[in-house]
């Protein structure tokens, strides 16, 4: 475990805590895409099935369990507890356009043609695009609460930090994971526009607002 990887995981953890904090303090899920959150549950459940047959480390198991339970809890908050604050009419991204290609890609690109490996590949590809409904919603509404943008920034930082982690692993451990690296670079690239506005506006104390 190198520092890039550790900081990446901590950033991921922080993003979920920020998300829960936003929901609890504003008592609202306004501005959040239910579709993106549902995709994350799909990502975590399909990838972390190995919890049941492959032990890596206590750290690994604890984190996986946390990501599965917290993402399911967020869905519960959005669909039950704070349902009136959820507005599906602006969450209009067509998720089937993401799921279809991800199924196809995972059947073509996988490390072994087994059910578990195909699911793992699928989860990697799906994670790379799972944020799109959320970014699409942000684009549509054109503005967001600061706390929501901090959540997205932490999530984007997590993906960005995995890239130097892979470079480190390539040089120091002679290890490459072409599927994870390719999908990870795509995923990070999706945040570029968001980060530009985040750095130039939110971190300067201004509201997150997109030009009309």
């Amino acid at each position: 475990m190198n520092l890039f990887r550790l900081f990446g995981d901590m950033s991921h953890l922080a993003s979920i805590l920020l998300l829960l904090y936003k929901i609890q303090t504003t008592r609202s899920v306004r501005g959040l895409s239910f579709k993106t959150q549902a995709l994350y549950v799909t990502v975590f459940v399909t990838r972390y099935l190995d919890l049941f047959y492959d032990y890596v480390s206590l750290y690994n198991s604890v984190m996986k369990t946390f990501f599965i339970t917290s993402s399911c809890y967020v869905l519960y908050l959005m669909k039950k507890k704070y349902r009136p604050t959820n507005d599906p009419s602006i969450d209009t991204f067509r998720v089937e356009y993401l799921l279809g290609p991800c199924v196809l890609l995972s059947l073509i690109f996988n490390y072994r043609f087994t059910f578990a490996e195909i699911l793992w590949s699928f989860s990697i590809f799906l994670e790379s695009v799972a944020i799109l409904p959320q970014l699409f919603m942000l684009q549509r509404t054109g503005e967001a609460e600061a706390i929501t943008t901090h959540y997205l920034a932490a999530l984007g930082a997590y993906r960005a930090l995995y890239i130097p982690n892979w470079i480190y692993r390539y040089w120091m451990e002679d290890q490459v994971d072409p599927i994870a690296v390719t999908a990870g670079i795509v995923q990070t690239a999706l945040y570029v526009d968001f980060f530009y506005v985040y750095f130039t506006k939110v971190l300067q104390g201004q509201r997150f607002e997109l030009p009309a």
Binding site: R5, D9, H12, D50, D54, V56, S57, N60, M63, K64, F67, Y111, R112, W120, Y162, N165, W166, R169, Q175, V176, D177, P178, I179, A180
Partner: peptide, 10 residues
Amino acid sequence: GAEEGHKDEL
């Protein structure tokens, strides 16, 4: 190994 991927990552 590379054919297994980075399964220790999250």
